[in-house]
Amino acid sequence: MKLPDTAHTAKPWRVHGITPDFRLYDVWALPTPGGPDDFPLLVRNTVEGDTSDNPSRVARALFAIRWKLGRLFGWDGPGAGVGSRVATLRDRLPADLRAGDAGPEFATLPFRSVFLTDDEWAAEMSNRTVHAVMHLSWVPDGTGGYRGQMAVLVKPNGLFGRAYMAAIAPFRHLVVYPPLMREIGDTWRASRRR
């Protein structure tokens, strides 16, 4: 379920201190009901994710098109990523977070972990269009349990990046996120049964 921006901005998350120049694009409540100690499972499920197995054929097709366009126009080349086109956000971390665990690395998606705490995890990616942060947190659900929350923060790369984000907005909200939320819920239920 999409949440108002304040569901993210009103919390004292550590990510706020390293992303003042990023814009908050989306905040989602994740279908991941659990207990106070289940955040590591959410992080593990996330790093094992892959756009090629999205349950929506339309979403899979959109991701495949995006990756092909990226190869064709050089959006995702080696010089476009974190550490090349943009410095890693790890360089902005305060000493305690820099000394801590960055978090696990992704199996297939082009994200890199930035930092991990007991209830907060940030991962970043960059290409010729944007520098983006996926922020996962573990929050009380109001009924005595907990659930995941995802925020997407983006720093577009100039006019082209802003135009790109505007062009994909309807696809993100109508085509990509609804099946992604279902997939996250399905994966969560399956991993809790194991």
Rank of each mutant, 00 (worst) to 15 (best):
M1Y: 03
P4T: 12
D5I: 02
H8G: 01
K11S: 08
P12K: 07
W13S: 02
W13F: 15
V15D: 00
G17E: 15
I18C: 02
T19Y: 03
P20T: 10
D21V: 05
D21W: 07
F22E: 01
Y25N: 10
V27E: 00
A29F: 00
G35P: 00
V47D: 06
V47G: 07
E48R: 15
E48S: 10
G49I: 00
S52Y: 10
D53A: 08
D53V: 15
P55R: 11
S56F: 03
R57Q: 10
A59N: 11
A61G: 10
A61L: 13
L62A: 13
A64D: 12
W67K: 13
W67C: 02
K68L: 13
K68I: 08
G70T: 12
L72S: 12
F73N: 13
G74I: 11
G83E: 14
S84K: 13
R85S: 12
L89G: 01
D91R: 15
D91E: 15
R92L: 14
L93R: 03
P94L: 09
D96A: 15
R98A: 15
R98V: 08
G100Q: 04
G103E: 01
G103S: 03
L109C: 06
L109F: 05
S113C: 06
V114M: 04
V114E: 04
F115I: 02
D118G: 10
E120L: 05
N127H: 13
H131W: 02
W138D: 02
P140N: 14
D141F: 05
G142P: 12
G144F: 10
R147S: 10
R147T: 08
Q149V: 05
Q149E: 13
A151N: 03
K155Q: 13
N157V: 14
G158F: 12
G158H: 11
F160T: 14
R162P: 02
A163I: 15
M165R: 11
I168K: 08
A169G: 08
F171N: 01
F171Y: 08
R172G: 04
H173R: 14
L174S: 03
L174A: 11
Y177L: 06
P178Y: 08
P179F: 08
L180H: 01
E183M: 11
G185D: 06
T187G: 10
T187V: 11
T187Q: 12
W188I: 00
W188D: 02
R189G: 03
A190E: 12
A190Y: 09
S191Y: 03
